[in-house]
C-alpha cells in the first residue's frame, strides 16, 4: 500500500486509488454518479416497499404492509367486475328460450362465445377442441346423435350426463354378450357378420342367415328390428356408417363381446344453467344440430 494520495497515472491521466501490488496500481474509475444515485434510490424504495407492501414471511403468515395489498383479491375483484359487466347478457340468456337465443344475432354471438370458452374448459378433453370426438367419444359435428340432436336434447344431455352420478342421468347399457357368456363365441361371430351386413357392407351370407333370429332375440329390443337404433334408449343406429367404437369387423366383434359404454359426467350442478344453455347453442351450432 502506498500512502501517496491523488497520484495521477501518466499513461491514462486518471487518478489512482493509491493501492499498489507489486508495482501494479489501480486506477480510480468510480461508478457514474447517476448510477450511484439510482442505486441508493432503489434501496430507499425497497425500504418503503417493505413498509407498504406485503414483504416478510412470519412464522404463521406474512407482513401485510400498510396497503394490505393482495393479488388474489385483485383477481377476485376483476372477476367480480367481469361478472357484473356480463350480468345483463347472462340475464338475457337466462330468460330466453334456446330457440330465441338462436334467432337473436347478438345473443347468439354472446352464447357461442361463452359456449366455446366453456367447451374448451370442460368438454374438449374427451370430445376434442373442435368437438370432433375420438374413439369412444362421440363426434359432435356430424348428424349422428345417440340421445338426440335438438337444442333441448343437447341441453338435457349436458345437464344430466350419460351413465353419470345424477339421479336422472341418461342411462343405457350394452350387455357384454361374449364376456358374460350370454352368447356362444360362434354366435357372437355370426352377429358380427349380421351387423356388417346391416351397414350395407358385404358379409358372410350363411352367418347372416344364422344370426337373423339371434339379432331379433337379443338386439332388436334396443336397436330396433331393422337396427336403426332408438334415441330414447341411446341405442345407436347400426345401419349408418358412423361407429363410435370403430367400423372394422374386430371392432364390432369387440363391442358385442365386451359391451363398452362411456360415461359423460353430469354438468347440472357444476355449470350454471346459463352456461349450459350457451354450451347447448354452441354444440348445436357446430353443424349437427337438428
Amino acid at each position: 500500500m502506498s500512502d501517496k494520495k491523488n497520484e495521477i497515472d501518466d499513461v491514462s491521466g486518471t487518478e489512482t486509488t493509491g493501492h499498489e501490488w507489486d508495482g501494479i496500481k489501480e486506477l480510480n474509475t468510480p461508478l457514474p454518479r447517476w448510477w450511484i444515485g439510482i442505486f441508493y434510490a432503489c434501496i430507499v424504495w425497497a425500504i418503503g416497499y417493505w413498509i407498504v407492501m406485503p414483504a416478510w414471511p412470519t412464522l404463521n403468515g406474512y407482513t401485510h404492509g400498510w396497503f394490505n395489498h393482495s393479488q388474489r383479491d385483485d383477481v377476485m375483484a376483476q372477476v367480480g367486475l367481469l361478472k357484473a359487466a356480463r350480468a345483463s347478457k347472462e340475464r338475457e340468456l337466462s330468460n330466453a328460450t334456446l330457440a330465441q337465443i338462436q334467432s337473436n344475432p347478438e345473443l347468439l354471438q354472446f352464447a357461442q362465445a361463452e359456449g366455446k370458452s366453456a367447451f374448451g374448459d370442460n368438454c374438449a378433453p374427451c370430445h376434442g377442441s373442435g368437438g370432433q370426438g375420438a374413439h369412444g367419444y362421440p363426434n359432435l359435428n356430424d348428424d349422428v346423435w345417440l340421445w338426440g340432436g335438438s337444442l333441448a336434447d343437447i341441453q338435457h344431455t349436458i345437464t344430466v350426463g350419460v351413465r353419470s352420478t345424477a339421479a336422472e342421468t341418461r342411462q343405457s347399457q350394452m350387455p357384454s354378450f361374449g364376456r358374460d357368456a350370454m352368447l356362444k363365441p360362434a354366435q357372437v361371430d355370426d352377429l358380427t357378420e349380421y351387423v356388417v351386413h346391416l351397414s350395407g357392407r358385404p358379409a358372410n351370407g350363411a352367418a347372416v342367415t344364422r344370426a337373423t333370429k339371434l339379432f331379433a332375440d337379443n338386439c332388436a329390443m334396443c336397436h330396433g328390428p331393422e337396427g336403426k337404433g332408438n334415441r330414447t334408449m341411446g341405442a345407436p343406429n347400426l345401419t349408418d356408417n358412423d361407429w363410435l367404437y370403430g367400423p372394422r369387423r374386430e371392432d364390432i366383434h369387440d363391442q358385442i363381446w365386451n359391451g363398452h359404454g362411456g360415461v359423460m359426467p353430469t354438468w347440472g350442478g357444476r355449470l350454471t344453467p346459463e352456461t349450459i344453455k350457451a354450451l347447448a347453442v354452441y354444440v348445436h351450432g357446430l353443424g349437427g344440430g337438428e
Binding site: 377442441s129 370432433q132 356430424d142 349422428v144 349408418d240 356408417n241
Partner: peptide, 14 residues
C-alpha cells in the same frame, strides 16, 4: 381445421 371435414351418416361431407 378441427375437424377438417365432417362425414355425415349418409356419407355426405360437410
Amino acid at each position: 381445421r378441427n375437424p377438417n371435414f365432417v362425414t355425415l351418416a349418409d356419407g355426405a361431407v360437410r
